[in-house]
Computed example of a mutant assay.
Amino acid sequence: MYGLVDREALLAKVRAQMHDKRYRHTLGVAESARRLAERFGADPDKAELAGYLHDYCKCWPVEKMRDILVRHDMPRELLEGEKELWHAFAGAIVIQTELGVSDPEILQAVRYHTTGRPGMSLLEKVVCVADYIEPNRDFPGVEMIRALAEQDLDEALACALGGTIQHLIEKRKTVYPLTLLAYNDLVSRRDAQGGV
């Protein structure tokens, strides 16, 4: 997909956008995304690239992200919601306009890696789960999600999103509507297939 020189140039651009801890996380997500893609049948190169790019704007000032989102007519509920979500939506715009990434699957995987959405593609699920389980993550329940991700990507994602929703409720923060819809979609599909 990209040669060694291109890969190194890309990583240099990504590295320039973030501090050391975020960059280590980014490398962990790319590695985890490739591994999950190989396990579940997504394109490993696309998964790895989306992993490298998923937090491209994470360390940017919120004013800069807000400006990008406003200029691109992002939904009002996004702009009025938690700023922690902005980097994913702004990142999808920026990697397309500034880095020339045009693959819609990669752009969608970056855009929805924090919120999820109903009807997620396999690549979107891979990147979202990889973001939760990469080796540098350490939070209550991460080992359970890692174990689930070895067997069932949808269950791992439902568990991860459910944990996020619960955490936000406990902190009395808003839950972005797409996250609730994504969780409900995964659980409904499982139930329709006779899952537990």
Score class of each variant (00 low, 15 high):
Pro118Ala: 10
Val196Ser: 12
Tyr23Met: 09
Met65Ser: 03
Ala147Met: 08
Arg146Gly: 02
Ile95Ala: 01
Met1Arg: 08
Tyr176Lys: 01
Leu69Ser: 05
Gln108Cys: 15
Arg190Ile: 01
Asp103Arg: 01
Ala156Ile: 03
Leu157Gly: 04
Glu63Arg: 03
Leu180Ile: 13
His25Ile: 06
Gly195Asp: 14
Glu98Lys: 11
Leu36Ser: 03
Gly116His: 01
Glu63Asp: 15
Gly116Lys: 00
Leu180Lys: 09
Ile145Glu: 00
Ala192Tyr: 11
Arg35Ser: 12
Arg76Cys: 13
Ile95His: 00
Met74His: 11
Met144His: 14
Arg146Tyr: 03
Gln166Met: 14
Val110Met: 13
Leu168Tyr: 14
Gly141Ser: 11
Tyr52Asn: 06
Ala192Thr: 09
Ser121Ala: 13
Val187Thr: 10
Ala147Ile: 03
Arg146Ile: 03
Ala16Val: 05
Ala90Ile: 12
Pro177Val: 07
Val14Gly: 03
Tyr132Trp: 09
Gly119Thr: 06
His87Ile: 07
Pro61Tyr: 07
Leu10Phe: 11
Leu79Met: 11
Arg172Trp: 07
Asp152Thr: 11
Arg39Trp: 09
Leu122His: 06
Pro177Trp: 05
Glu77Met: 10
Ala160Arg: 00
Arg22Tyr: 04
Tyr132Arg: 04
His72Gln: 06
Ala192Ile: 08
Leu122Met: 13
Ala160Tyr: 00
Glu77Ser: 11
His19Ile: 08
Asn184Ser: 14
Glu150His: 09
Arg189Val: 03
Leu161Gly: 00
Arg190Trp: 13
Val196His: 13
Val62Trp: 08
Ala158Gln: 05
Val101Pro: 00
Val110Ser: 03
Leu85Ile: 07
His19Asp: 15
Ala156Val: 05
Val62Asn: 09
Glu48Ile: 00
Arg66Asp: 01
Gly100Val: 11
Tyr23Asn: 06
Thr164Cys: 04
Pro61Ser: 08
Cys57Ile: 02
Tyr132Gly: 02
Ala12Thr: 14
Ile169Tyr: 11
Ala147Tyr: 14
Leu10Ser: 07
Leu180Gly: 13
Leu181Asp: 13
Ala92Ser: 15
Gly162Met: 05
Val101Met: 08
Asp67Pro: 01
Glu124Gln: 06
Asp67His: 10
Ala90Pro: 05
Leu11Val: 08
Asp6Phe: 10
Tyr52Asp: 09
Leu53Pro: 02
Gly162Ile: 05
Leu181Glu: 15
Arg76Pro: 01
Thr115Arg: 00
His87Ser: 07
Ala16Trp: 02
Glu63Lys: 03
Gln193Cys: 12
Leu4Arg: 11
Leu153Arg: 02
Ile95Gln: 00
Lys64Gly: 05
Asn136Pro: 00
